[in-house]
Amino acid sequence: MTGVWVAVIVASVGCYLLKLAGVSLPPSVLERDDVQRVATMLPVAMLAALVAVELFDSAGSLGLDLRLLAGVGAGVVALVLRQSFLVVIVVAAVVTAVLRALT
């Protein structure tokens, strides 16, 4: 078996086991009040961080694609105007694509 196959299998199984570990906490831990409050806030903090990484990570250094930022900004405007999820993501993509085609 080549090195690439070893990497593919080890990393794939490892990633799966990480997912499995996350959904394997015993109820005695999960039912604790403080754990529940942390669990509610966990995705808020991490998904907000993920948005920041999507916007500002340019191959490991800080970078900014203004067309992408403008597109996502347009999506936020749609959000403020109470548009649906579908409208928000389509607006973001279309504005970004148009700006990329023009510049």
Partner: peptide, 18 residues
């Protein structure tokens, strides 16, 4: 990225966080 699909990812997460 040509279709702006990369903008859908942060936009989608923002919409769901909203």
């Amino acid at each position: 990225a040509t279709l702006g699909l990369d903008a859908m990812i942060p936009a989608a997460f923002l919409a769901l966080l909203w």
